[in-house]
Design a protein around this nucleic acid. Sequence first.
DNA 1: ATTCAGCATTGCGAATTATCAATTCCTGAA
DNA 2: TTCAGGAATTGATAATTCGCAATGCTGAAT
Lengths: 241, 241
Amino acid sequence: MNVEVQILEKQAIDKAWSGISSCENCGIRHLALFADLEHDDFELIHKPVLEINKYTGENLYNEGDDGEFLYTVRSGIVKLTQYLPDGGQRIVRLLRTGDVAGLEVLVNPQYEHFATVIRDAQLCQIPRDVVERLNKETPRLHSQLLTRWHNAVKRADEWLTELSTGSSKSRVARLVIGLSDKSDHSCHLFSREDLGAILGVTTETTSRIIAEFKRDGALKDQGKNHFWADIQLLENIANQN
Amino acid sequence: MNVEVQILEKQAIDKAWSGISSCENCGIRHLALFADLEHDDFELIHKPVLEINKYTGENLYNEGDDGEFLYTVRSGIVKLTQYLPDGGQRIVRLLRTGDVAGLEVLVNPQYEHFATVIRDAQLCQIPRDVVERLNKETPRLHSQLLTRWHNAVKRADEWLTELSTGSSKSRVARLVIGLSDKSDHSCHLFSREDLGAILGVTTETTSRIIAEFKRDGALKDQGKNHFWADIQLLENIANQN
DNA sequence: ATTCAGCATTGCGAATTATCAATTCCTGAA
DNA sequence: TTCAGGAATTGATAATTCGCAATGCTGAAT
């Protein structure tokens, strides 16, 4: 490697430290893929990691696309969707702060879902090369990767047992609980359509149930899909019927 | 390490090569966790890997148990089940030849499912220590582990989109297709109860639909839950309605 | 403040699925 | 071969959920 290239890379690294994205000093690093990296490891980042903003409704990538980037969610929420041949769709996971979208491209070159922002998000766009290189050169990424995968499976399993088992009412209740902040009872929901696609239930059924929760006082509407949630009551609903 | 221990270990390794379980010469190694290991790596196996037989209905481990072993499925089928607080149960995955049960103990010390044999199985019982040691000492296990996890997620996602979305009839059809051997149209099903727990549907509904498939000629009963399957017809059923 | 478009809600009849209770069918053991 | 017990199937009815259409609500733009 010649000197010029070294300088360019050094600059890129400096930039990464201070400007566009300073992975090493990242505020959410303890949550992120690079949590365990050490100072020297960051020098292996030879391509820029961009910090990007995406707004509700915007798309990160499509199933089948060539997977050039991984995305770490800094804030906001991203949904991963899959479609059936007959057009049926299903949201298979929600990604939140610290989660990674597109992990699969480390194993397979194509994305396996449609990734769409459903709550304004700040993301780190990490070139696949960078992660592959780190994965090859430092063992400190391994355990994070294993943990990530483990987590994805665990969540998928929970999704299945909690959100796809039982009556619609129980399932909506469990979902609402999962989207609630237990400390202050606040709850920010998505469109009824998305909620339905998470639960495998029609938009109307979801709407009816949420409207019922409102009438029963399990949810109090505060506008813009913000609610106050009676967690206890919702848990009762979730565990019966 | 003293000489005696070394000898014991050497014997254990020899045994592993020839007797109880010869991982290096394993007939399904290309499918198994140890696929990429090289000759020297096998010396790192310091505890015996047992080959065990389990019969339908037998249990491998329970959720919450201390995860002492991982199990590679050599033949047969193992179901992984999770329970809801309200008693509802859901089969979240089926493991077949080459799959590993209990991978999660590499990340977390407790099993996350109930693992039960639902078709007579031959298994390799691998002490967690062994895998952890290999994971530490040889990079050749990493990619297998990542691939395994990736696979588990992929399957979980498919399970969700294909087996938990759409009408019961479509879902039963998709499940039957998935359990069919496309080359000879043979299909070996499980109890209606297990099929129901896979699909999140009652035993009776499952039974009715399968009985209907039999009447329609989509399935031809050959006794003991063996069937001949009209894949094409089943696919039509799966993709409509 | 008004308007409009996109969601959310609701009503209603149809279709699906659950539930409970028989029967019938198999299968493995005697 | 017979028999007992578990599993599968079926029936009848209730409960749930869907599908479609109509209506209501909300927030952003004018």
